Computed example of a mutant assay.
Amino acid sequence: MFVRVDEARALLAALLPERQVQMVPLRSAYGRSLAADLTAKVSHPSATESALDGIACREADTLTASPDAPVRLRLVGESRAGAAFTGEVGAGEAVRIYTGAPLPVGADAICPVEQLQDDGEGVRLRRPASPGDVRHEGGDFRAGETVLMAGMRLTPARVALAAALGHAEVPIFKPLKVAVMSTGDEVVEPGQPLGAGQVYNSNAYGLVGMLEEAGCEAVLLPAAPDSPEALEQALASVGGADVLLTSGGVSMGKYDFVRDLLVQQGKVSFWKVRMRPGGPAMLGGWKGLPVFGLPGNPVSSLVVFHVIVRPALTGQPLTTLRLRAGTPFRGLSDKTAFWRASLRGGEVFDYGKQGSGVLRSLSDAEALVVIPEGGSAQVGDEVDVVLMG
């Protein structure tokens, strides 16, 4: 029943339905996962052009230009976006040019407007023109080039890039519909009076936010009280979801009814993961519905989601960085440890408060340091780091 973190991810992914692909307009693509590679329909830039306002000319004509000895060139026209100069720039000549305008034939360099002084029909350069201010055709990407890869999450920058590639619609994976339900008599909705021993339903709202960040359709269900009958009734109300996430009720206590229900009436793929925090996690099924039981402790619940559930739902591997440890990080003999940490100056530091109920630590900490089973890290060692932002 005990599994490693990577085994837990694989088992959950195997229970999820096959992802459906749909075409959506760019306006609806933000936050979704790309279902196929996107190739460029055009080159960008579509022509060799200027990166700034100034003049286009031949670099060789300007090499001696300085503030004390400006070089004078004769203006023979202008080039702007939508109205390119149709002639050719010859020796001693220049064309006034604007950002994004096509570079005239014969010109190979740009001098910015700040370094120019108009002189009637000519212009004086206080410095040499630079070929580095020329954007070459296809310098960003060329027509036919594969630019965006299947599986990428469509951030605003990637949606903008898809538009620049020439795509009005993109293929995305249809979002998985994920229901979220907290369990326990002690769980109270925020805003209601809180009695002794009760807690607000923070887990559910954190999970819904993480699901939406992952591109899923999240459905928040009412919390279920601690009774087998109430839990079974709540599960029966989950309609149309691809997977159910529960929070609480999966440990070894007398009132952990999620565990009991799956064991007695459903199926169990695993119970407990070799990790800390978050060991008492559970995967099973109930009447054909995949059920992932997250621990009730808020830190454990959200960490398990981040390192196991999210990669399985999105199909994207957990991304880690290698950073230098600024403080020691202890290991555990039989579990992979995910310690909350802060980042400073390219190093990672132990956050300090590692209790599973210290929810504020997840708000303040920026990363999780991963210490494999039986390992440890001393100051100066390189460690794997999972960013939480």
Rank of each mutant, 00 (worst) to 15 (best):
R72I: 06
D364S: 15
T99F: 04
V370H: 02
A14E: 07
P298K: 00
L289H: 04
R310P: 01
W286S: 03
Q378V: 04
G184H: 04
G92M: 03
E169P: 01
I308Y: 08
H167K: 14
P25C: 14
G380Q: 05
E169N: 10
K254L: 09
T155E: 13
S50R: 00
R135T: 06
T48H: 14
T327Q: 09
G90S: 12
V89T: 05
G331C: 11
R310C: 01
M181H: 06
R124G: 11
S356K: 12
G77F: 02
S361I: 05
L362Y: 03
Y98T: 15
D334C: 04
R274H: 12
R340L: 08
I110N: 00
A60E: 08
M275W: 03
A13M: 05
T39L: 10
M181A: 07
T183L: 08
A150Y: 12
V208L: 01
E93S: 11
L302E: 01
D334S: 09
R27I: 07
A60D: 05
R153W: 01
G138C: 03
L245C: 04
D6N: 08
I110K: 04
A367P: 04
R96L: 07
A196Q: 10
V303W: 07
G77R: 13
G253I: 09
Y30S: 11
L244V: 11
V5L: 13
D381F: 10
